[in-house]
Simulated scan of single mutants.
Amino acid sequence: MNQMIFITGADRGLGLALTKDFLDRGDIVFAGQFMEDWNELAELKLLHQEHLFLIPLDVSDPESVMAAYHLVEEKTDKIDILINNAGISGSIGDITCLENIERGMQIFQTNCLGPLCMVNTFLPLMMKENTTKRLCFISSEAGSISVCHREDGFVYPMSKAGLNMVVKLLFADLREQGFTFRLYNPGWMRSYMSGKKSVVGKIEPEESSKVAIDYFTKTLKHEDVLKMLDNNNMVWPF
Results as ranks from 00 to 15, higher is better:
K197L: 14
E176W: 05
Q33I: 00
E40I: 01
A142F: 05
K196M: 06
L54T: 00
N233C: 13
Q33M: 08
G143R: 12
G187F: 04
Y184R: 05
L125D: 05
E102Y: 07
I81W: 02
N111F: 06
Q33F: 01
F22K: 07
K160L: 09
T110A: 05
A68H: 05
S144F: 09
V166F: 10
L16Q: 01
G15S: 04
F179Y: 15
V119D: 02
E206D: 10
T110Y: 04
M4S: 14
F216W: 06
R182Q: 13
D152H: 09
W236A: 07
V59P: 03
G26L: 12
T96I: 14
D230C: 11
S146E: 15
F6D: 01
F171Q: 13
N185K: 11
M234V: 13
K78D: 03
I55S: 06
L57P: 03
K218W: 11
T110E: 05
K168R: 15
M4K: 14
N233M: 14
F238T: 13
K45F: 08
V225I: 15
F179A: 06
V211C: 10
G9K: 03
N84V: 03
K78P: 00
F137N: 11
D173Q: 15
K45C: 11
G114R: 06
G195A: 01
C112M: 15
E129I: 01
V167H: 09
D80T: 09
S191E: 02
G13P: 01
V200R: 10
P157I: 07
A212F: 13
S144I: 11
S191L: 03
Y215N: 07
M193I: 15
K202H: 03
G143P: 12
F181A: 10
L116W: 08
T132Y: 06
E204L: 12
D37R: 04
M126K: 02
D11Q: 04
G153F: 01
E73S: 12
H222I: 13
C117Y: 06
E141M: 14
G153C: 11
K78V: 00
T131D: 09
D230M: 13
C136W: 05
D24W: 02
R190C: 04
N231K: 05
Y215Q: 11
S140R: 05
L170K: 13
I213S: 08
N2W: 02
T8M: 01
T76G: 05
